[in-house]
Each structure stands twice: as structure tokens, then as C-alpha cells.
């Protein structure tokens, strides 16, 4: 194991990924989206799983400016402090979840480096927790994507209320999702692993009248 973590006595971090010979299985691995993608290419709702990304939950008080600055420096972006906003720099996106919480996505293999860097370089009361295995990302898009979402989510998807870049944690059918608008007709849904199959079934059903197209990564 390439465990080179600097372990402070206070907080334990570990590289949770095996060597690349062992392939991780995303929460929708069993659905075999790759085969589904081969079958149909026309429809009003498109779906793609953005599997095996790295996700970390960051908690800190942004009113502590020194702490915020050192976190920003490690992340290489300015953590958004405006409610329901997001910031993307390169491959890193930080989503405002709560006044003292962000959901950060990085390439899967970069999560441990980020955790290590935080332990080394950020001093103060924070917590950074790896939750990569607990979620997956669906990108839904297409001409009828808003209709499909309106069947699933109580939030207002009108572009005036939900512009690109906005992040909304809310209910998705009887589960939940962190939803970010990517552009007028594309959304990112971050969903919990254990609910992934339910949401996958739901989206298929809710998209039926528009036609669902599965896209490959």
C-alpha cells in the first residue's frame, strides 16, 4: 500500500484506493450502462454516469478568515460563501452545501492527496471527509430534461430561479440529490450509493414518454 500519509495524532487519513489493477465498481455498475448506451440514440432525456470521482465533504467556519484562506490555498480555488453557489477550477469543483459545509469533487485518485495536504497545511478546526465511495454522479441533459426533473424534484427549474452553476440539495423522488445546473439543458445529480438503483429506475420511468438515451463516459 502506498500509504505515505503524514499522520497527525489527531486525525487519521488513509489512502483508500487500491492499485489501479483493481477496478472500482460504481453504484450503477450492475446496471451495465455501457450496453444500454449501445441500444438507442434518440430521445428527449440523456443520461451519463460520471463514475468513480473523488468526493470530499469539507466543514469549516468561513468567518475564520485565516482558516478559509489556507483552505482556499490548498484547494486552489475560492470556496463559495454565497449560498447555493459553486466554483470550479480545473478538475476541482466546490459546492456550497451549508454555511460551513462544501462538497468538493476531484478526480478519483486525487482525493487522498487533497486530504493529506489539508492535514499538513491547514491549521484550525475543520474536517475533511472522503465520501467518494458513497455517491455517484449522473449527468442528465436533453430537450425534456427539465420535465423529467419536474416529475422528480420539488424545486423550481426555471432558468431564472436555477441558473447554471447553482447548487441545490433537495429531494429526488423519495430519495435526495445534490443538483447543479451545468447549462440550460444539463444537470449534474450527485446521489447516494445505496439509492442509486432506485433513482436509476425512477429516471427510466419518468423519461419513458420522452425517450431515454444512455451516453457512455
Amino acid at each position: 500500500m502506498s500509504d505515505t500519509a503524514v499522520e497527525t495524532p489527531n486525525v487519521m487519513v488513509m489512502n483508500q484506493l487500491p492499485s489501479s489493477e483493481i477496478v472500482g465498481e460504481s453504484p450503477l455498475h450492475h446496471a451495465d450502462l455501457a450496453s444500454a448506451a449501445a441500444t438507442k440514440n434518440e430521445g428527449g432525456v440523456h443520461l451519463r454516469e460520471n463514475a468513480l470521482q473523488g468526493f470530499l465533504t469539507l466543514r469549516l467556519n468561513p468567518e475564520n478568515k485565516d482558516l478559509l484562506a489556507s483552505a482556499n490555498a490548498v484547494l486552489g480555488l475560492e470556496l463559495p460563501t454565497k449560498p447555493l453557489s459553486s466554483v470550479t477550477e480545473g478538475a476541482t469543483t466546490a459546492r456550497w452545501m451549508s454555511p460551513d459545509e462544501w462538497l468538493i469533487s476531484v478526480p478519483g485518485e486525487a482525493a487522498f492527496d487533497l486530504e493529506t495536504a489539508f492535514q499538513e497545511k491547514v491549521d484550525g478546526h475543520f474536517s475533511l471527509v472522503n465520501s467518494s465511495g458513497g455517491v455517484t454522479t449522473l449527468v442528465v441533459s436533453g430537450e425534456h430534461v427539465v420535465e423529467m426533473l419536474k416529475k422528480s424534484v420539488p424545486y423550481d427549474f426555471h432558468i431564472s430561479e436555477f441558473p447554471a452553476g447553482k447548487v441545490v440539495s433537495t429531494l429526488f423522488a423519495k430519495s435526495s440529490a445534490v443538483i447543479r445546473r451545468l447549462d440550460e439543458q444539463a444537470f449534474e445529480l450527485i446521489i447516494r450509493r445505496s439509492f442509486a438503483d432506485y433513482i436509476w429506475l425512477w429516471i427510466q420511468d419518468a423519461s419513458r414518454e420522452y425517450g431515454l438515451v444512455i451516453k457512455n463516459d
Binding site: 488513509m14 453504484p27 458513497g134
Partner: peptide, 25 residues
């Protein structure tokens, strides 16, 4: 081959290990 946290706790009264790995593995 997978990094794990293993807890030697028991809900059966037997010698027992609870193996935790990142769920994708």
C-alpha cells in the same frame, strides 16, 4: 489489495473482524 479498516469487534461472541473498505471495492 484494497486498503481497509478492520475492527475486531463481535456481535456473535465469536472471534470476529469487521472489514471496511471503500464501497467501490
Amino acid at each position: 489489495g484494497v486498503p481497509a479498516r478492520v475492527f475486531r469487534i463481535s456481535f456473535t461472541g465469536e472471534l470476529s473482524y469487521e472489514i471496511n473498505v471503500q464501497a467501490n471495492y
